[in-house]
Design a protein around this nucleic acid. Structure first.
Lengths: 343, 343
DNA sequence: GTGAAAGCGCTAACAC
DNA sequence: GTGTTAGCGCTTTCAC
């Protein structure tokens, strides 16, 4: 097997303690003779000794690893297909974790149906929870978790302010989208979200959306909020029958599906219907037409979550443990003025 | 801190050994009285005991983790931008690793400039090396690595057959591309690769490409192989002056850049120039025109690498430790018959 | 300046 | 059926 410190010590005629001091002691007060130190270093090199980081971490009761999870009730997000939501988040998380010298791990126990053990057994110094579902079981898991953690897509009011959170400025993002659409002449604007009440932030955005409509004096009725029934006749019917001339969706993934369904239903986008997505990753550029979208700065949010997490792990003071990151707005091709020939 | 086995044992009036047996022993011959077992289980539950997986793994001298790295001399691949090359590989790796119960880790020590320590210090049970550079320093690193490993993008002949490898069938892939192009009437076909000799497989493909041209009796000259000088006048000059009516690139990333440069140089694709990429991820669908590409089955290659790795880690016999995965060919929009009006 | 001892949490081997 | 011992590799505390 691999050569250990004991082996080096034996060959150098000293104890492991000395070897440890020579090779790993942080600067101050090494108190080993030059000669011994030199000998040990030479021998270590000859024997090709490498410290066993796992053993050290075990002793130090740390792992230098961050775990990533989404809670239960969902499939793991794909990196290779569809929206780049998760890819953006991961790039942001990994960038920042590396900056601090931490690893980032995909763990089957964490991403399975029952992460209860893995979230608390010490195999991760901290966790980043990018949860779309902040109801029932997931709330419970988060609250009972023993490891330091940060939840992305939750705001301060979740978890009674006890758990650090990162979220984008949904109000600001939706406002920009609505202003853009009204600027193009739209007045009947709808919001479409996944037909699952467990998509917590999508639901929150619906509420915010309605508030903004009211504030701006735009028509706001039952029909302003649509639950997507992707792939079903229901959705196409909704699309054909709605009075809305423009729709904002809760995610770019949903916008992509909506776009597809609208086109299958014979609607032209943006001539007959303007669509605005949420997220605005490169995925939007690949759609036809390219998707105009509220820019949720996912990379920055991932990085910010790591900052919050590392501060927690190291007991650093946090001036604010609930981050709200501003949204941008990226105009592409899926929105336009209302076509007077509609219907 | 977290409650340990010792705590449970104390409360139950037994030794940790018994607790370990009751809670974790695999089925057979537990040899603990029903009563004791029940008592221990109850107490463990009450105390909310969770086994410390890190400690167990340390004792077992394993980590259940797979590390991913690309060797030195490159930046870490982005998941969120450009080609989905790395995203596909990762999805394939993670899928299969999870199937075996292994975690997959991005480790800064592994992805930095000097992975020498991390590749061998036991923090990973195995490594997946997706190396574009199989020259000098990286070859050395791979050969001196103490952890089990698999190299993606290397063929049997690298490392004297000692290191397990996964690669796509470059000959088959390039043949399909060339057949497709000749079928459209092209005879002068070029191959474009990154202008870096360290892109080992890109260089290998150039050789294979020329062999195929010769086999099929197509013109093959110095100009058949072009070194990309993306963003420089050089490339545009190459594009304008080449006799080639169709180009095959060593990667979809390069094809994307080439497409861009060609269009900036005033060439229409595919009317004036047909372009075929390599890889064929969703990235190809997002380009304009959509990129026709040789399909390197990256996800399957990632999964296959994990299979090879796990077999190695567990000392299972391997009938073949050099996998060659067949390529597909995806016709999209960037190839067509030769436009007689060219130039 | 160097060494001995102890312990991180767990489990396998070996008593009894 | 249960306990004792020992050790995975490392580092810190304390003694000399």
């Amino acid at each position: 097997m691999a050569v250990t410190m004991r082996d080096v010590a034996a060959k150098a005629g000293v104890t492991p303690t000395v070897v440890s001091r020579v090779l790993h002691n942080k600067a101050t007060s090494v108190r080993v003779s030059q000669a011994t130190a030199e000998r040990i270093r030479t021998i270590a090199k000859e024997m090709n000794y490498r410290v066993n980081v796992t053993a050290r971490n075990f002793r130090d009761q740390q792992t230098m690893m961050i775990g990533v999870l989404h809670g239960v009730g969902f499939e793991r997000q794909r990196l290779s297909e569809g929206s780049r939501y998760f890819a953006c988040l991961m790039d942001g998380i990994v960038d920042r974790a590396f900056h601090y010298g931490y690893s980032v791990t995909f763990c089957p126990a964490l991403m399975g149906d029952n992460p209860g053990q893995a979230v608390s057994d010490g195999r991760f110094d901290g966790l980043i929870w990018y949860s779309t579902d902040l109801t029932g079981r997931n709330t419970e898991l988060i609250q009972n978790c023993l490891s330091p953690l940060v939840v992305i897509h939750a705001n301060e009011s979740y978890f009674e302010g006890k758990v650090p959170t990162v979220i984008c400025d949904n109000y600001g993002g939706l406002s920009q989208a609505i202003d853009h659409l009204t600027g193009l002449g739209h007045r009947h604007i709808g919001y479409v979200l996944e037909n699952r009440e467990t998509f917590s932030e999508a639901v929150d955005r619906a509420k915010i959306f309605k508030d903004i409509l009211v504030e701006k004096g735009l028509p706001c009725c039952d029909e302003s909020i649509m639950l997507a029934e992707i792939g079903l006749d229901g959705l196409r019917r909704q699309l054909r029958e709605t009075v809305c001339t423009a729709l904002i969706t809760s995610s770019e993934k949903l916008a992509g599906e909506l776009l597809h369904e609208a086109q299958k239903a014979g609607l032209r986008v943006p001539e007959d219907l303007s669509i605005v997505g949420f997220d605005s990753t490169e995925y939007c550029d690949g759609l036809t037409p390219k998707l105009t979208a509220i820019n949720q700065p996912l990379q920055r949010m991932g990085s910010a979550a790591v900052d919050l997490l590392i501060a927690q792990v190291n007991d650093l003071p946090l001036s604010n443990k609930h981050l709200v990151v501003p949204c941008g707005f990226d105009i592409r091709e899926s929105t336009s003025t209302i076509n007077p020939t509609k219907k």
